[in-house]
């Protein structure tokens, strides 16, 4: 079968789901039960009445498995719509990170300078620490975190990806 020779690609699965207890558990239980991996996960209510939530899951899988993930998620009772966004589907994917750096002296100044270059905002500061807020594509966040590592990187909290298709197309 050709499907076994396909190489894995990274994808964001966006799922519009009824905002009910257990809906998220159904989706992530399906992923773990069928052996699909989850690299990041975000979920929040997105409509005005808070009746629907959007789940964004980043995964890596072959196109055949991505098709299976879509079909398996779509048949869950509380799921409205599913979009699978890979490099072939134009989309915007963003993530936010809060990065705590503990440093003083020259390293503190370096951290601030790099943060400016990355448009990371210091949202908390003490005599010995900063918390930077940074939004962007995941690889930009990775690059920033890597640069902070020798400068006193202490703690990272990331949101995981939120994604949406470019243009007028909607989920």
């Amino acid at each position: 079968m050709t499907t076994q020779q396909e190489s894995p690609v990274s994808a964001v699965i966006s799922i519009q789901v009824e905002n009910e207890s257990g809906a998220l558990a159904r989706v992530i239980g399906l992923f773990s039960g069928r052996g699909y991996n989850i690299e990041s996960l975000t979920v929040a209510a997105v409509d005005e009445t808070r009746r629907q939530s959007r789940i964004n899951i980043v995964t890596t899988a072959t196109p055949h498995v991505l098709g299976q993930i879509r079909a398996q998620v779509e048949r869950l009772v509380p799921v409205y719509r599913v979009a699978v966004m890979t490099g072939r589907e134009p989309h915007v994917a963003r993530e936010m990170a809060l990065v705590k750096v503990i440093a003083s002296g020259e390293r503190r100044a370096d951290a601030l300078r790099i943060a400016q270059a990355f448009r990371a905002h210091p949202v908390d500061a003490s005599a010995t620490s900063f918390v930077f807020e940074l939004t962007g594509a995941s690889d930009k966040l990775d690059a920033f975190i890597d640069l902070m590592r020798p400068l006193g990187l202490a703690e990272v909290s990331r949101t995981g990806i939120a994604a949406i298709a470019r243009g007028a197309a909607i989920l």
């Binding site: 079968m1 050709t2 499907t3 055949h64 098709g67 299976q68 079909a71 398996q72 779509e74 048949r75």
Partner: peptide, 11 residues
């Protein structure tokens, strides 16, 4: 009747 069965095992 279940779309997830199509192409699941055999293309």
């Amino acid at each position: 009747i279940d779309p997830s069965q199509i192409n699941k095992i055999v293309p």
